[in-house]
Nucleic acid binder design. Structure first.
Lengths: 156, 156
DNA sequence: CTCAATGCAAATCTTTTGCATGCTA
DNA sequence: TAGCATGCAAAAGATTTGCATTGAG
């Protein structure tokens, strides 16, 4: 029964229609690529992956679609400091576990971690509540990243 | 006694020399600009501010110096999603209070907050310790940002 | 005096935009 | 059929690089 768990063309199709958008071949291909990886893909990465199957899809469409997906909340956009944006499916739209990132400042490697997420969540909840009230700011999302040296780079 | 509190040309001069670098007019001007603001300046912003006093300093030098300052740990570089990097003096080099950011996803306004920093600090310490051990990752820094709608943008 | 630092111009590279055409619903 | 979506080419920007020159120590 495809679609029940937040995966599959039909489910996405419904989400798109629900937002007033159309499901197209490029969009489906892009979602497929994002669904099949746990890596942090750049627009170029997505383009190359999609291009293998649908050689006619242009890079512009990749950018436009990724931006749309970010706006719809299905995709997160990250900056890991290497001059290009990275994209991942958000946990809401699939069985993706919520996680944060460790970014190596030497080799730019990015490691996902799900540890301590629960402890963080509690603090974040309180913080968000406090900040919302104090600054009259409606918080919808947060970003947490740790920087340092990965195991490969720290040995000297 | 300039320099004791981590401010002033002499102090910076020493830090530069200590790292094997030279103190120059452009570098001093850039540090001066960063020291006098609590805003999140782009390279272009810094360039324009420096340019008022030293019209001969080029944008390239601004970029090179900011990168150097980031590498030396005196400046933090941020991405608030508007396509240009932002820079602030790090708290270690002046009397700047450690803070995080609230970023408005609508108007791109950025609000600094120092609330909850203490609570966060404790959690971050534990998390960093755990992550360091588990992933054999040497953490040197962290980034926390909250996204949402600022007071001006949320009414409607 | 030496070599790091600079300025200028050109190059790079990612992301965006204009516009005619194609395709979903 | 209507209008959103796409592809292509060109544009826009931010940041980087090459190289001759300048200036700090």
């Amino acid at each position: 029964m495809p679609g029940r768990d937040g995966t599959g063309p039909l489910w996405w199709h419904g989400r798109f229609r629900g937002c007033g958008y159309r499901m197209t071949v490029p969009r489906e291909a892009i979602l497929d690529v994002l669904s099949r990886t746990s890596k942090h893909l750049s627009a170029e990465d997505v383009y190359m992956a999609v291009h293998k199957i649908h050689a006619n899809v242009g890079l512009t469409t990749i950018y436009r679609t990724l931006e749309l997906l970010v706006k719809m909340g299905f995709v997160y956009k990250f900056d890991f400091g290497d001059g290009r944006a990275r994209y991942e499916l958000s946990e809401g739209s699939k069985g993706v576990r919520h996680h944060h990132h460790l970014v190596c400042t030497n080799c730019s490697r990015v490691i996902d971690y799900t540890d301590f997420i629960d402890e963080e969540a509690e603090l974040l909840n309180q913080t968000e509540k406090g900040l919302s009230k104090k600054h009259n700011f409606e918080i919808t999302n947060h970003l947490i990243q740790f920087y340092g040296l990965c195991d490969r780079c720290k040995k000297g």
